[in-house]
Structures are given as C-alpha cells and as structure tokens.
Design a protein around this nucleic acid. Sequence first.
DNA 1: ATTTTATGTCAGCCATGTTGACTTTCCAAG
DNA 2: CTTGGAAAGTCAACATGGCTGACATAAAAT
Lengths: 169, 169
Amino acid sequence: MAAGSPGTQGGESLLFLTDEQLRKGIEAMFFAYRAFTADPDRILENYEYGRAHHRAIHFINRQPGLTVNTLLIMLGVTKQSLNRVLRTLVEDGLVEARVGRTDKRERNLFLTDSGAALERELSDAQRARMRAAYRAAGPAAVAGFRQVLEAMMDPEIRRHYQSIKDGAA
Amino acid sequence: MAAGSPGTQGGESLLFLTDEQLRKGIEAMFFAYRAFTADPDRILENYEYGRAHHRAIHFINRQPGLTVNTLLIMLGVTKQSLNRVLRTLVEDGLVEARVGRTDKRERNLFLTDSGAALERELSDAQRARMRAAYRAAGPAAVAGFRQVLEAMMDPEIRRHYQSIKDGAA
DNA sequence: ATTTTATGTCAGCCATGTTGACTTTCCAAG
DNA sequence: CTTGGAAAGTCAACATGGCTGACATAAAAT
C-alpha cells in the first residue's frame, strides 16, 4: 500500500512525500545523527564516560533540580540503566543529588562545578557543529528543521521538549 | 510555536544562532531520532534481528550490488561488526552475496525476495512516521530540514549521501 | 614472485540497553 | 495510626552491538 510510488497522485504539491524523498530523509537522519554524536563521543574517550553520561549531564544542566523520575522519562531508559550512569556521576562529584524539600523521597539533580565544566566542554563541541550547520543552511531552513523534528517526536515527549526553556523567550 | 521561529530578519541579528537555539536543536535531534528508530525497533523484536540488521538491509536495498567495503563506509562500523550482522542475513536467506564479476575478491550484496519483504515492512513503518512529519510541517520545512541535516554530515559521508538516487531526479 | 587489497572469522572486551526481584524511605489515604 | 503505593536504589543476569587484535584466504596489482 504505502510501498507504491505516488508520483502521479496528488499533483505537484505532494512531490515532497514520494517514497524516494522519504527514504532520503531517513538516510539524512541517520548520517546527520552520527555526525551529531561524533564530536562529544570523541571527547568522552578521554574520560571514563560514555554517551549515556553525556545525555544525563545535558538534561540536568538544562533543568537543574529535576527529579530522577523526570530524567528517566526524558532519556527513555529504565531506572536501572540510568542509575548505573547517575551513580558514577555522583561518586565522581559531577552531579549532586539533593533530597527533595517537599517530598523527601525525590532526589533533585544538579551539576557541580566540575559537572558543569564537563557539560560545557561537550556542549561546546556539539554546538559548534550545530552552529556551522545552522549558519550554512540559514534561518528559514533552521525553522523547517525544527518543525519537522518536532512533528516526528512522540507526543508525550514533544510536550516535555516544548516545556524546556527556549532561547527566544 | 513562535519561540522556535526566528524571524527571517535573523540573518542580520543571527538570533537563530544563540546557544539556547542551538541547545533546542540538539534536544530536537535527540528526541526525534529516538522516535525515528522506535517503529522499526518494535517490528524487529518479532524477529531475531536488531537495529544493525535494519541498517544493512536499508542500504543494500538502496544500492543493490554494493560491495561489503562500500557498505562498511556507509554504516561507519568495523568489518567485524558488519560481518556478524551480514553473516546471519546471508545464512537466513535475506541477503545474497555474489562474487564480483570484474574483481572476484569483492562481494556484491543483494536482497533476496524475503529480504526485500522485511525491508518493506521496516521501511513502511519508518516512512509512515516520516510522511506524517513531512505532511505536518509542509514542503518548505522539509527542504530546510534536509538542508540542515546535510550541512551537519561529515563531508565524505555527505558525498555518499548525495550519490544515492534522489526522487527529485 | 611478492605485496596489497577485500573479505571472512575467532576471541575477547566494553558500554549500555533490558527484565526481575527486593529494599528503604516516605507521602497520603483510609 | 496503619497501610498502600510511589520514588529511588541496588543486585543479578542477559542481549545487542560497538571495539581491538590476530590470523586466513583469494585474487588483484606491482
């Protein structure tokens, strides 16, 4: 059904929905994502951390004080997976887990100074590539890029994504 | 969302290049990529295959007859990693590895009928999400999406990407 | 004839995902 | 006040898919 080539249906306005166009989009996602993770991965080789640590650090930096459960939802992994990562970060003094004030069962997560330093190092590299791509493509392309990515997310995650502070605010 | 749309006059102020905008782009990549891989991953649970098999099948379908070495470059993994995947696909009769005509050291890779069937099942799911996102965002956004992703790729990979057949041709 | 290339394979290691079971702490509702 | 359930931590076991290193074979290139 969906496998057919709909080049003749819908007229010119739907040419961007042909299977070929969609497959090119799939490949673009794959190749771009690999480049996107390559720079921080290279830096992480110098530490005893991996991509999972990077992701945790990123979101703790973005939403200081977020709870373990919230981070779990953002990362989309099990608590056992996250705990393995989080434990090493706390032990190494990059992340602080403060007992919640209102609900003492919760842990509010914060980056320490050294955690923030690592975050900056990783983020600098990743943003450099993103900045170069944004600059090369231009503002209109960037807006389209963000629109398509947002439309691709699962709805529940999209709400979380949109709730994180936005620089244009 | 207005906050995600830096005006086109941003070419002067470069508002779309703020760190906050770049961080939102980073998060968008992360969340969208996860959704992007979720559908095929769910299907693959019914087989004894994983994401690595999917990627191999995708590129063999896109460039029938490509050599192992070319596939290695596209996937960006070691030959040992690829071989583990490729061997099971050949054993299970999803992929055929024909000895090269001109250079008998090479193996030209093709999908069998059952390999093509699995490719279609996986691709249908992935394209359905991509199509929905494209449709929601519109043709202009899709063009921008592709531009940014292309600019993000490593140059060598970008050449490979561009050499694969494009529906607009 | 020798070297290089393309491929295949074995063995082992690592990071990071999973499920299941169990504990501790603590909020909240009965 | 008791109890049920939520948040978090932990242990164990396992799967996937990266990696390196070492080695084998066939065929092309020199």
